[in-house]
């Protein structure tokens, strides 16, 4: 067992993990933050996307020990208290989710995408940037619409 320390959603946390423990397992089982999901075994579906030191990564493909000392943000930490993050609000407003299982990963990827493109996103770019996130319910139509709306909103207020 190895002791790890990290900041998760603004709070210092520590835990004892086996070296083989994946970051997503530590988040879900160790910290009981179950908004981050696991939808595949091959690092493709993106249901597990979180931000580590400001970068969107797949938490199913990183060991918890690798994230020792980092700053992690999960879906539970994205809103500012009761105020939804603009991406969260846009997903609700534009019906960007149905069963909700891929949604946390989608939202974390979207927030990262908008940041990297400084809010300047068009439909083709959004679709290409979603390569690592699979949704089975929405046909992506309203996810794309949600991300576009959030990007427009965020660049307006920036």
């Amino acid at each position: 067992m190895t002791t790890i320390n990290m900041t998760v959603n603004g709070k210092a946390v520590s835990g004892e993990v086996e070296d083989r423990t994946l970051l997503v397992e530590f988040i879900r089982e160790g910290l009981r933050l179950t908004g981050t999901h696991v939808g595949c075994d091959t690092s493709q579906c993106g249901a597990c996307v979180v931000h580590v030191d400001g970068k969107a990564i797949k938490s199913c493909t990183m060991l918890a020990v690798q994230a020792d000392g980092t700053n992690v943000v999960t879906i539970e930490g994205l809103a500012n208290g009761a105020d939804l993050h603009p991406v969260q609000a846009a997903f609700k407003e534009n019906h960007g989710l149905q069963c909700g299982f891929c949604t946390p990963g989608m939202i974390m990827s979207a927030a990262d995408m908008i940041e990297r493109y400084d809010g300047k996103l068009d439909e083709a770019t959004i679709r290409a940037e979603l390569e690592g996130n699979i949704c089975r319910c929405t046909g992506y139509h309203n996810i794309v619409k949600s991300i576009q709306a959030a990007a427009d909103e965020m660049s307006k207020s920036a």
């Binding site: 990564i57 990262d112 390569e131 690592g132």
Partner: peptide
């Protein structure tokens, strides 16, 4: 290469 998350790692 891969997707944005893969490219970050």
């Amino acid at each position: 290469i891969g997707d944005p998350h893969v490219r970050n790692c």
